[in-house]
């Protein structure tokens, strides 16, 4: 690799950070009316995905968009919105992608059912195989 390429690499590194160079978002810690409200806030931001990050929730992200969305969620909580309404607000704007807990719907039936189905099928296979073994035991008395 030539040095010029290395330079481009450095440039792209800086470019990818341009999203961080926006007008500084509000960094002040949010103030809550009650412990319950704070718990709800923590739970909500844990389950919502930061869209500009690689794979982070809203609670942990330092991206400006995450700051703004946290402020938005805080405001909605104070305004008395329910958790579902807040999630709905996010989904209307960013789609199901924003939810870390995928809703049970047509394109997630398989996701939610597969482990249970596997457990069931595996359990049945296990039962039949144990039965076969038990039969084997009956036919040949123990050593």
């Amino acid at each position: 690799m030539k040095l010029s390429k290395l330079f481009i690499l450095i440039l792209t590194l800086t470019l990818s950070f341009s999203v961080l160079a926006q007008r500084a978002p509000v960094q002040e810690p949010l103030v809550f009316e009650s412990m319950l409200q704070e718990d709800r806030f923590n739970q909500l931001t844990l389950e919502l995905r930061c869209l500009v990050c690689q794979n982070q929730n809203l609670a942990d992200s330092d991206a400006p968009l995450a700051h703004d969305l946290r402020a938005e969620i805080h405001e909605m909580l104070v305004a008395g919105k329910t958790d579902d309404e807040i999630k709905q607000f996010m989904v209307e704007r960013y789609g199901d992608f924003v939810l870390y807990r995928p809703p049970v719907q047509k394109n997630t039936y398989l996701l939610w059912l597969a482990p249970m189905a596997l457990l069931l099928i595996g359990g049945l296979v296990l039962r039949s195989s144990v039965k076969k073994r038990a039969a084997l035991l009956d036919s040949s008395p123990t050593e």
């Binding site: 999203v19 969305l69 704007r93």
Partner: peptide
Amino acid sequence: YDGRVSIDFGVYAA
């Protein structure tokens, strides 16, 4: 200024 409308548009990058 505060990006409120951009949130309503579901903008996450520019």
